[in-house]
Computed example of a mutant assay.
Amino acid sequence: MSNTAVAPEKVVNPVRPTGHKILEIIKETKTEWTFRLENSLPIQDGQFMQLSIPRVGEAPISVSGYGPGYCDFTIRNVGKVTKELFSMKKGDTIFMRGAYGHGWPLENFAGKNMLIVAGGTGVAPIKTLVSKLCQNPENYGEIYLILGFKDSESILFRETLTKWQQTPHFHVVYTLDNEEYLDWETGLVTKFIPNVPFADFNDKYECVVVGPPVMMRFATMSLGENGVPDEKIWVSYERNMSCGIGKCGHCRIDSTYVCVDGPVFNYSEAKNLQD
């Protein structure tokens, strides 16, 4: 029997954040900026990270972009943590942990026609998904985008929106709630859902809906009215996600933990997630 000592396995703390430098800050609007952080942590489209500032607090933020050595977060200045973030500059350090949760089910989308409906900051969680569809058009059918913002001052990702508009097989509607604006439609996103040719898809399609709760409610309702079954609708929910690993219970609805079981859900399940 050997007397050689065996080193204990290193225990990894799943909620311990690490420091990441700010590589760039892109001022999308007056109240919404994109922070590009150095990053080597693995990410799936649709997941979120917990961003924190020592002695200030922590906030869950969806990933709006990523690539070799970096990831992006598009953040609205609405609270204590985000207010402190907006006072930071390139080269400063933000602490981060994750990525957490289930992302978009790309395996379900392969070879399908896609409808993506998003509003306001809800465009951030679908940005990496749409970019992937744009980069690999041969893997999908026709892509329909209906993206809405409150007004011209709140438009996010202007250069990216233009790129999507010019992509073959993309059918794009960009709309503002109550403002007339050059080359943009006017009206809520639900106004344009009936124009999508679902009958031509021969049941080979999937739908994604992300945005404020009221917008998501009426968008999913409109999809149902146009014959789209719940099983073909995917949504992303936000709900007081704190620990990210299903332990604290802040995001729990019945037996579902949004941070672990979501934030992406099939609507056949998500429609029953009510307090």
Rank of each mutant, 00 (worst) to 15 (best):
P137A: 07
G101E: 12
T128K: 12
T31N: 15
E185V: 01
P212C: 09
D183L: 11
L156P: 08
H171T: 01
T4P: 03
G91W: 01
S255A: 12
N195D: 14
G103F: 08
G119Q: 05
D261E: 10
G141Q: 10
M215S: 07
I116S: 00
V196P: 09
I193K: 00
L115I: 07
I193H: 00
F149M: 09
A199G: 02
I94Y: 02
C134V: 06
G101A: 12
K232E: 04
G141I: 12
F265P: 09
K27L: 03
N240L: 12
A99Y: 07
V196N: 10
C259V: 06
K163V: 04
L106H: 13
T18Y: 12
Y140Q: 10
G122H: 00
D261R: 07
P168V: 00
K30M: 11
S64M: 06
I53G: 05
F201W: 12
G19R: 05
S222C: 07
T82R: 03
F201Q: 06
E180K: 14
G69C: 07
P168M: 04
Y174T: 07
R217E: 13
V15P: 04
R76N: 02
A270M: 09
S242Q: 15
I146S: 00
V78Q: 10
F218I: 14
Y140W: 11
D183Q: 13
L41E: 13
V214N: 07
I25R: 04
V214C: 02
Q44H: 11
Q135P: 00
S64L: 06
A59I: 15
G211P: 03
C243E: 03
Y267R: 03
T167Q: 15
G141Y: 11
T256D: 04
H102Q: 15
E24V: 00
T190V: 13
F35A: 01
C207P: 05
I233W: 01
E24G: 02
S242M: 14
V258E: 05
D275Y: 14
P105R: 08
G46K: 11
L147G: 08
H20F: 03
N136F: 11
P60N: 02
N226L: 02
F157R: 07
F201Y: 14
N108I: 11
G227V: 06
H250K: 10
K150Q: 14
T162C: 08
E179F: 02
L273H: 08
E185P: 02
G46Q: 11
Q165S: 13
I43Y: 08
G67H: 05
T256Q: 03
R97S: 12
Y181V: 09
E107M: 09
N178F: 10
G227W: 04
